[in-house]
Design a binder for these strands. Structure first.
Lengths: 221, 221
DNA sequence: TTTTACCTCACCAAAAACAGTGATTAATAT
DNA sequence: ATATTAATCACTGTTTTTGGTGAGGTAAAA
């Protein structure tokens, strides 16, 4: 019998935690050592010297403190905690961000539950682990290919807009047409259209209405 | 041995589905009869006469068609399907909305997994079921107390416009194109365009973005 | 120094939106 | 009985948006 692997699970949805526990319990080698519903709880739990876990399964979107904050906390305080991120986001930038923050594995929530068990074992054994969709994405980017942007938290989307794009976005919400904007900004209509297309792509919406709704939601207007 | 209860699960996150299945499998009385990842899949599944389920567990946020649209489809086509909504939203208006659309139970994703089993049994037995947090909220509102608004998607209500126009307006804010609306509402594109033009005239705006902004301004967003 | 990000513009093609006019039916109100 | 309103659809246009590809210049960063 190998040594047991102890795991801590953090996600704001209890039901998902229970699902993970159910999946993990099918494997005798792994044991749950506790779970948290917020990033704050995670940090508190690991701050207690009586607590420890070989692997932390970490969701990125949680109230109070999110997964990014937890990873930053570990890095800042030089706590060498093995972390597997379990997220519904599948954007390259997000993956790169958490990897730079020291996470050792990344599993998309869209992948099958068995992957969690494999990931835990790999990471506990000082390897890295990525679910197949994430693996493909990383390989693609390493081979220099462009990776289309995927689902990601909105705070990242906002940052990715340039000044000009935000200008155009504001004018769109004021019902300006492309020619009117080009006039006002002293640009060619082609240029304005380029920004328009770039906005659609970056914010992952279908049309100008989607842009307007996004702008409202994020108080850009 | 009682008669088995057959259940269909719809959620865009496979892992959550697996979690639910794991929880449900602890109870011999209940059996999974299929699952869907989008609202469109749900509708298609139930449209097939070979398929049926006593209870549908329904997420509200799904791609292609969301949970609201699924409930609307059932109501419109007078399909008497027992539905339990499983959502991360905990706003009173959302709960009222889905109840008015005929749903029989509402479980917050923050509640423990055992509730799902209880909910399924209750609803299969023609009762209603709400997780404790939702119950508290409903009681509070029934006793006339104000309920603070919780997490919710974008919703609104409007006057002076006809029902059909409001429907179209709602869909426009969701980035539907005219053909998509015509498809969904079983109308000709000409008709939908008529509503569109009528909206532009009545609300005195230039384009679809103006409509969307109006919708936002005159409602709860 | 090389790479990357941003701003700028062009050309092409298809899809969608916008504009106006008019018409039928059914229900409702006067 | 008649007028109004809502819902439905058609025909014919023009304008705008959307999608894709490509590319030059500049400034900052690695």
């Amino acid at each position: 019998m190998k040594k047991k692997i102890y795991v801590h699970v953090a996600d704001d949805h209890k039901i998902l935690i229970e699902g993970i526990i159910a999946v993990i319990n099918t494997d005798k080698e792994i044991e749950i050592k506790g779970c948290s519903l917020t990033g704050q709880e995670v940090i508190k739990w690991f701050a207690n010297k009586k607590n420890s876990a070989d692997v932390l399964i970490l969701d990125l979107t949680m109230p109070v403190l999110d997964g990014f904050e937890v990873l930053k906390h570990f890095k800042k305080n030089k706590i060498d905690q093995k972390v597997i991120v379990l997220s519904s986001y599948d954007d390259l930038k997000i993956v790169q961000e958490v990897l730079s923050l020291g996470c050792k594995g990344y599993i998309s929530k869209n992948s099958a539950g068995e992957h969690i068990v494999n990931a835990i074992k790999a990471v506990a054994n000082d390897e890295q682990y990525f679910s197949t969709d994430i693996q493909k994405m990383l390989l693609k980017s390493l081979s220099g290919q462009k990776v289309p942007s995927g689902k990601m938290p909105e705070k990242f989307l906002l940052d990715s807009l340039t000044e000009r794009e935000i200008e155009v976005l504001k004018l769109i919400t004021k019902q300006y047409s492309t020619t009117e904007m080009a006039d006002l900004m002293n640009l060619s209509t082609n240029t304005v259209e380029t920004y328009r297309k770039s906005l659609l792509k970056k914010l992952k919406v279908k049309n100008a209405v989607g842009l307007a709704m996004y702008a409202v939601k994020h108080k850009i207007v």
